[in-house]
Amino acid sequence: SKWSPSQVVDWMKGLDDCLQQYIKNFEREKISGDQLLRITHQELEDLGVSRIGHQELILEAVD
């Protein structure tokens, strides 16, 4: 995926409302499409996504 960080942010805006709070962290870390495809629970935790349910929603959406 050749998504830029801004495309990742646009994609996140289409996800569940409960995930919108994390967008600024993804933006700050400039998460690209390639990074998103390989993202782990630990990396999500580092991005402030501490709730497992929220991590799962992001990982499922990526899949």
Rank of each mutant, 00 (worst) to 15 (best):
K2E: 08
M12K: 02
I58G: 00
D34H: 10
R38G: 11
E60L: 07
I23K: 07
R51Y: 15
Q55W: 00
V9K: 07
L59Q: 04
Q21G: 13
I52G: 12
Q42R: 14
V9T: 11
S6A: 15
E43K: 14
I23H: 06
F26P: 04
I23L: 10
R51T: 15
R51I: 15
L59N: 03
E43N: 11
M12C: 03
H41W: 07
G14Y: 00
F26W: 02
S4D: 14
D10E: 15
R51K: 15
I23R: 09
K2V: 11
Q55G: 00
D63V: 09
N25P: 08
L47A: 03
E27W: 07
H54E: 06
D10A: 10
K13S: 09
N25S: 13
F26K: 01
I39F: 08
D10T: 09
G14F: 00
Q7A: 09
E43A: 10
Q35T: 11
R28S: 13
L59W: 03
L47M: 12
I39C: 06
P5H: 12
Q7V: 04
W3H: 02
H54L: 00
S4I: 05
C18K: 08
D63T: 13
W11D: 04
S6Q: 14
I31G: 01
R28N: 12
I31H: 03
Q42S: 11
L19R: 03
K2C: 12
Q35M: 10
Q20M: 10
S1T: 09
D10N: 12
L59F: 07
N25E: 10
E43T: 10
S1L: 10
E43F: 06
E45L: 13
Q35L: 07
C18N: 11
R28V: 10
H41N: 12
K30D: 09
R28Q: 13
E60A: 13
V9R: 08
L44G: 02
I52N: 10
S32I: 05
S50G: 08
Q42Y: 01
L57A: 11
I23A: 14
F26M: 03
D16I: 04
Q55V: 07
K13I: 06
L15Q: 10
L47R: 03
G14D: 11
D16Q: 08
L36T: 01
L37F: 08
E60R: 12
E45V: 11
I58S: 03
K2G: 13
Q55E: 00
H54N: 04
K13R: 14
I23F: 02
L19M: 09
V8D: 02
I39T: 06
D17L: 06
